[in-house]
Amino acid sequence: MQVLYTAEALATGDGREGHVRSFDGLLEADLAVPKELGGAGGATNPEQLFAAGYAACFHSALRRVARQARADVSGSTVIGRVGIGPNGDGGFGLAVELEIALPSVERVAAQQLVDRAHQVCPYSNAVRGNIDVKLTVVDE
């Protein structure tokens, strides 16, 4: 693969209770363990960052395949949900759900676009076979 862009970020502090920033300074955030995992909450966490990145990337892939199919995806949205929990082997795993709304596209065509976007999206390609990803097309 020819790399066209590389994002760089630095994590400091105490991991999930630390701080992250991109080398270009465009992203900077404190991190906190969510209350649901026994932490104080009050700041973002790796799962939120992953959910936001995956949702944005998938939405971009969806718009790309829609343009190729000449489909109207105006008003489309993607909600990313990333869950974390024990994996049964002493570690933790992730589960992802993407909820996709394509209000201007008929249901069958919408599902076809979503399935195609799942083949194109770099995040989908990266996690395939490693993380369960549930794709849900919703009516709006």
Rank of each mutant, 00 (worst) to 15 (best):
G13K: 10
E47S: 14
Q112T: 05
A117R: 02
V114M: 04
R81E: 10
G53R: 12
A11H: 07
F50C: 03
L31F: 03
A11Y: 09
Q2N: 11
G75E: 00
Q48M: 07
L62Y: 04
N125G: 14
G25S: 03
I131W: 08
Y5Q: 06
R107Q: 12
G41H: 09
V78I: 06
V114W: 02
F23K: 15
E28N: 09
A9E: 03
A40V: 08
G88V: 07
L98H: 03
V3A: 15
D132N: 10
L94K: 09
E8W: 02
N45A: 14
S60K: 01
I131Q: 08
N87A: 15
L26F: 04
V137M: 08
T6D: 04
T44E: 03
G13R: 14
G80C: 07
H118Y: 05
E106G: 00
R64G: 08
L98G: 06
G83H: 08
R63C: 10
A52S: 12
Q68D: 07
D14M: 08
A40Y: 05
G88I: 09
E36Q: 15
L94P: 00
L94H: 11
R67A: 14
G13H: 09
A109N: 01
L49V: 11
Y123E: 07
V65F: 11
H19T: 08
L94D: 06
